[in-house]
Design a protein around this nucleic acid. Structure first.
Length: 193
DNA sequence: CATAGGATTCCCT
DNA sequence: GGGAATCCTATGA
């Protein structure tokens, strides 16, 4: 069994999907850009929302793969995840940063004048730029308003520890496009992942 | 450039 | 009641 989308099998382990997503273009209502930073979370992962089993908040993480899991962060921001593994497993990939490509003016307007340059460099920022809210939770990535475009050619990927967590801080499940100016934070490692 | 503190909602203990 | 997969602004070096 597999759930293929943009050349990626979303039933694969989350760290593999997180790696494959680097370079993939994501559009929401025709606005978006290229994914340059992701983080993997899994069921047996103390830093994951899925660690303590299904709850009202993380229910979609236990739903079918290649669907979204959108949650409220720090009471202010929205964060976008892509569900992976088989339905019921409870794994996902946090989309942490995109390189803005399509609909720049729309994204700038959504982000506001003060921060118009940081359109997608951070999970909260990219959700604001793409107008992601709770309404986008548990939606299929294979149907509108979502659209994934497979990456072309090879990408140079770096890995490192995940950001903003207090558990399992030694697990190197943050992935990024090497040298991208659109990363939320730089990677310390400069060798191939 | 680095650090610090506040904003604000929802879930879990 | 506490803490969270964050972001923005202000302040001081």
């Amino acid at each position: 069994m597999s759930t293929l989308l943009a050349g990626i099998d979303f039933e694969a382990p989350s760290d593999e999907v997180a790696r494959l997503l680097i370079g993939v273009t994501v559009l929401v209502d025709g606005v978006g850009g290229r994914i340059v930073e992701t983080e993997a979370y899994d069921r047996e992962d103390p830093a994951s929302h899925a660690f303590s089993g299904p709850t009202a908040r993380n229910a979609s993480m236990f739903g079918p793969p290649a669907h979204t899991y959108v949650y409220r962060s720090y009471g202010i921001h929205w964060c976008l995840n892509f569900v992976c593994r088989e339905a019921g497993h409870g794994a996902g990939v946090l989309i942490r940063a995109i390189e803005p490509l399509v609909g720049l003016d729309v994204m700038r307007a959504r982000r506001g004048l003060e921060a118009a340059t940081l359109l997608g460099s951070g999970p909260g920022r990219l959700c604001q730029a793409l107008a992601i809210t709770r309404e986008h939770n548990a939606m299929s990535l294979a149907a509108p308003p979502f659209e994934l475009v497979a990456r072309e050619g090879d990408v140079d990927i770096v890995a490192g520890p995940r950001i903003g967590i207090t558990k399992a801080m030694d697990v190197p499940w943050r992935f990024g496009l090497r040298g991208s100016p659109h990363l939320s934070k730089p990677f310390k490692v400069t060798k191939p992942a």
